[in-house]
């Protein structure tokens, strides 16, 4: 564990806590894409199957359990909670997320480290995570006016990805034989998707005004 990976994990944890806080206390999920949240739940469900087969550390196991629990809790809130579900922008959140799942799965069947059940699902989760933010970004672009919590949520998700890139660079130079092409490339794609959002986020922060995205 190095400082970049810890900072990345903490940003990830913090982003989810922000989202849960918003949903739980304000009882609103306005501006949050259910499609993206469902994709994340699928990402964690397929990636963390190794929770049953291997042990790395208590930290690792607890984080995995948190990510699994929180992603399904958020989906549950948005779909079934009496108050929260009414604030969901269903008509705006129209990205066809099913179209992301199949290509990612086919790609995982073709490009992977090892052709085993867990390994293919793990690879699928990496590809899917890379594009899972797309419905959220499309929703932000559509609604344009982004409330603070949703903006911070996406910002910290992007920070998590950026720290992971620094972590890979650090590990590449400090560990022997550490190279993970699949993880790196899908991670880079994922981080690149945030670039546009980051630009407007930092701009609004510097002008200390509300985040507004161009149409």
């Amino acid at each position: 564990m190095n400082i970049f990976r810890l900072a990345g994990d903490m940003s990830h944890l913090f982003s989810i806590l922000l989202l849960l806080l918003k949903i739980h206390t304000i009882k609103s999920c306005a501006g949050v894409s259910l499609k993206t949240q469902e994709l994340y739940a699928l990402v964690f469900a397929t990636r963390y199957l190794d929770i049953f087969t291997g042990y790395i550390s208590l930290y690792n196991t607890l984080m995995k359990m948190f990510f699994l629990w929180s992603s399904f809790t958020i989906v549950w809130y948005m779909r079934y909670h009496n108050v929260v579900r009414r604030s969901y922008d269903k008509d705006q959140d129209t990205f066809r997320h099913y179209f992301l799942i199949l290509p990612c799965f086919i790609l995982a069947l073709l490009v992977h480290e090892k052709f085993t059940f867990l390994e293919v699902l793990w690879t699928f989760s990496l590809y899917l995570e890379a594009v899972a933010i797309l419905p959220q970004l499309v929703l932000l672009q559509r609604t344009r006016n982004v409330d603070n919590l949703t903006g911070h949520y996406v910002f910290f998700l992007g920070a998590y990805r950026s720290f992971y890139i620094l972590n890979w660079i650090y590990r590449y130079f400090t560990e022997q034989n550490y190279y993970k092409w699949i993880t790196w490339i899908s991670g880079l794609v994922q981080t690149a998707l945030y670039a546009d959002f980051f630009y407007y986020y930092v701009k609004s922060w510097r002008n200390s005004e509300r985040l507004q995205l161009p149409a």
Binding site: R5, D9, H12, D50, G54, I56, N60, M63, K64, F67, E113, K114, E119, W122, Y164, N167, E175, N177, Y178, T183
Partner: peptide
């Protein structure tokens, strides 16, 4: 140390 087939990142 990264063992083959073990993913230690989250």
């Amino acid at each position: 140390i990264d063992v083959e087939g073990v993913h230690d990142e989250l």
